[in-house]
Design a protein around this nucleic acid. Structure first.
Lengths: 306, 306
DNA sequence: GCGGGGCGATACTCTATCGGTATGAATCCA
DNA sequence: TGGATTCATACCGATAGAGTATCGCCCCGC
């Protein structure tokens, strides 16, 4: 069977046009090289060199193989290198579970940072709910998932990516619209636009517990699936809405974003989930980038557990 | 050192996701396969599989190598195949020495026929004189040369490609212009446009010997390098010109091509030269095509030797 | 809870083959 | 004609690839 050794030897002989000189270059003696070349010719069923008393020269078949062999040998080198880099997590792909409002600001910032450090890693985004992320993490369909208000699982680790302040969204026509900031207590009589209970613990429970802390139960006017839809409904006068800060990047006519007062302010997390048993080197590198991101943004603490 | 065996084994394991099953597919036993994979991982410095109790699965590095290895293995197969075909003369290049008036008809017909049979052989044309062709053939810069009136050489073989009748070119105003055919004897008083003595024996000598046979010495009005230039000079009234039939394909205003009568008609050869010591398989295939061309056109005999 | 089955890893042996040394055969040149 | 050069051949020792036997591990079922 043809081996890379044969090709390497052949290329050396083709370069030197002499078996003896090629043997020197390869640091072997001449007879074994002669034999390897004979073997290669035998295997291919083609004469590669015409032997003369002053060396060898390539036949048409030899010239053809020369081009091919050099290409193959360089591809093998390249493959080794790429494999090594893949083992170090420098190339490959990172499958990321994402959710709506995280993509307005926080998640893109983290992913940009990672892409800058590992440009050869392909980042594949998968919008999915909290439960779907946990399931996908376990099955390695994704390597990391981003979400809020994540529960604890024995096999899933979590790191807070960012703490966000909460904002109250009111229509421009609302009496509160001119205020610099608003307390949630002032929303006692306002109808709320909230997000559906697709996964517990969820943002609904979070808002409900906030209201409860201020002594009232929110009046739910409408449930929506997306933060942006909620803001649009606020603009249409369906009620008020509480959103994390990054939703502010969604500019909508007819609404005002007011920071919610509390001391200390209530913060909502964006948390990164990953499977403890996933030892993909790319994941490891990503977690390194994430830690750096946390340091840069002074993010401390563990996720809220309701 | 990494060998193709390693890659082949690795691909088999990656396909089966099981060392045991891959060993069966490879017709070897399981332990050596295990060792080869370990060796590959060692050489690359990368873990390619995560072993589990129910088989193995690819790591990121393994997935990377899988793509590369399959590509490399298929390239090796391709290279073998191409080399074999090159050995049979089915791919490669044919360097061809050509001359002016041969390219009007005869040489293109032969080369088209060869190209149809061996489309992967690249045909490279080199316009050159007779002597340059012989020199180039000896140095293998060309594999075949086309020419006329070739001398004999000990190391150069020749096969006539086509015999051509001679035509007399006269201006439209010439008294002979209306005739169906003309004997060279009727040109006793006409000035001749002839071709330079770049290589002996040449067309000049050929025409001179023809005139001598009819009892006169031609009056040379002008010497030119190209048959088409000669025809153009005839059109301008410089004299008459004798050309082989294929020059008729060069249509020029103001001239008439008249077949030269003689019985039997004097024929001029287009001959293919090649070096007896050139054992390129492509040359061999070309000579096969050439023989077929000769049969199709009922070409017999050896070249004229003046 | 224990034993059987399945999978990969290890230990050991055998042998094919790779590489080394010595030498031969052919050719060229002085 | 003899030395030098180049590739080919003969033979030998060592490496390592492939085989057999077995271990260790884990899952699964009784």
């Amino acid at each position: 069977m043809i081996e890379l050794r044969h090709l390497k030897y052949f290329v050396a002989v083709a370069k030197e046009l002499s078996i003896g000189r090629a043997a020197v270059a390869l640091n072997i003696s001449q007879p074994p090289l002669t034999r390897q070349i004979q073997q290669l010719e035998e295997d291919l069923g083609a004469v590669l060199f015409v032997r003369s008393v002053k060396g060898v020269e390539l036949t048409d078949a030899g010239r053809t193989l020369y081009e091919e062999a050099r290409n193959i040998l360089s591809l093998v080198d390249l493959a080794s290198e790429r494999t090594r880099r893949a083992a170090q997590g420098r190339i490959g792909r990172l499958d990321v579970g994402i959710f709506g409002s995280g993509m307005y600001d926080i998640i893109p910032r983290v992913l940009r940072k990672f892409r800058a450090a590992f440009p050869e890693v392909k980042i594949v985004l998968h919008p999915m709910t909290k439960d779907a992320q946990v399931e996908a993490l376990r099955q390695r369909r994704i390597n990391v998932g981003f979400n809020r208000l994540v529960p604890r699982y024995p096999d899933i680790a979590s790191r807070v990516v960012m703490w966000e302040r909460l904002y109250i969204v009111v229509p421009e026509s609302d009496p509160l619209a001119g205020r610099a900031e608003v307390s949630i207590a002032e929303l006692v009589d306002s109808p709320f636009v909230l997000f559906p209970k697709v996964a517990r613990p969820n943002f609904n429970d979070f808002v409900a517990s906030l209201c409860q802390r201020h002594g009232f139960v929110p009046h739910i006017a409408q449930e929506v699936g997306e933060a942006t839809t909620g803001v649009a409904l606020v603009a249409s006068g369906f009620g008020v809405c509480i959103v994390p800060e990054s939703v502010k990047y969604f500019r909508a006519d007819g609404v005002v974003y007011l920071p919610m007062t509390e001391s200390p302010p209530t913060m909502l997390d964006v948390t990164c989930l990953y499977c403890l048993e996933d030892n993909s080197p790319i994941l490891a590198e990503f977690l390194g980038v994430l830690e750096e991101f946390r340091r840069e943004n002074d993010v401390v603490g563990d996720p809220h557990v309701l």
